[in-house]
Design a binder for these strands. Structure first.
Lengths: 112, 112
DNA sequence: CAGGAATATTCCTGTAAAGGAATATTAAAA
DNA sequence: TTTTAATATTCCTTTACAGGAATATTCCTG
C-alpha cells in the first residue's frame, strides 16, 4: 500500500472532501462552502489529494472541477484483500506461534 | 471511515509493521529487529497502532505479542465498498454535473 | 534478593504540516 | 482594458509528531 495515499486521507478535512466527491464532482468553491473551509485551505487540501493521485481536476474556464480517481481505491482494495485472512477472522495462528516460541526454549525444562 | 486509523497507517514504519503482522503475530523485539528500528520506537509505533485499534497485545510474561485486529480492516472494507461505483469506473457522471452547472446560468443567455 | 531481559515511558529536539492572511494568476464579463 | 470571479500560491506562525537517548517497569532466573 502507498503511504502517500494513507497520509493524504489521514487529515480529517481531506477525508471529508473525498466523501463529498463520492457523490459527484465539485468545484473548489462548492467544496469549501460545504465543508466550511476557506478557499485557500480547500485548494491546499485538494493539492495534496491530487498529488496522492486521489483526485484530479478538470479545467472549466475559471473553475476546476475535482473528481475522484479510481486507481487509489483499486489499490486500496487490492491491499485490503491481502488481509482477507485476518479480517475474516480466520486468523488464529497465535497458538501456533506461541508453541513455536516455547519450542525455542524447550530442552531446558517444561512447566505446564 | 476513521481518520485515526488512516493516520496510524500513514506513517511508513507503522505501515510496515502492519504488513509484517499480516504473516503472524510478533513480539516487540522481533518487530524492531526485522524493521531495523530501535526498541523504543517500535514500542511507540505499536502504541499508536494499538490506540487506533489496529493491533492488540497478548501479554506473555516479559513480552507482548502483537497481532492484528480484524475490525479496522472490516471497517476499511465497508468504507471502500461505498466507493465501488468509482473504483469500478462506472463513475462518469461528470457530464451530468456539467450540464447542471450550465443549467444554473441558463435563463440569461445560451451560448453553445 | 540481585541481575538481566523485554518492553514502556519520558524528555528533548527538529521538522513537517495545517491554518490564517495576503497576494498572485487566470479567465470571463462589462 | 478595467473589473470581477474562481482558484492557486506564498509567507508566517503554531502545533503535532517522529526519532534519539536515557530511564522506568515488569517479570524471570539464579
Amino acid at each position: 500500500m502507498n503511504a502517500k495515499v494513507m497520509s493524504a486521507l489521514a487529515e480529517p478535512n481531506r477525508l471529508q472532501i473525498v466523501e463529498l466527491l463520492r457523490e459527484h464532482p465539485l468545484t473548489v468553491g462548492e467544496i469549501a462552502e460545504r465543508l466550511q473551509l476557506r478557499q485557500p485551505q480547500a485548494s491546499k487540501h485538494l493539492r495534496v489529494l491530487s498529488e496522492a493521485g486521489i483526485v484530479e481536476a478538470q479545467v472549466d474556464a475559471n473553475r476546476r472541477i475535482y473528481r475522484l480517481r479510481p486507481e487509489p481505491f483499486q489499490e486500496l482494495d487490492d491491499w485490503l484483500m491481502s488481509y482477507r485472512d485476518i479480517w475474516e477472522e480466520r486468523f488464529d495462528r497465535l497458538d501456533d506461534y506461541l508453541q513455536k516460541l516455547q519450542g525455542k526454549e524447550t530442552g531446558k525444562e517444561q512447566q505446564d
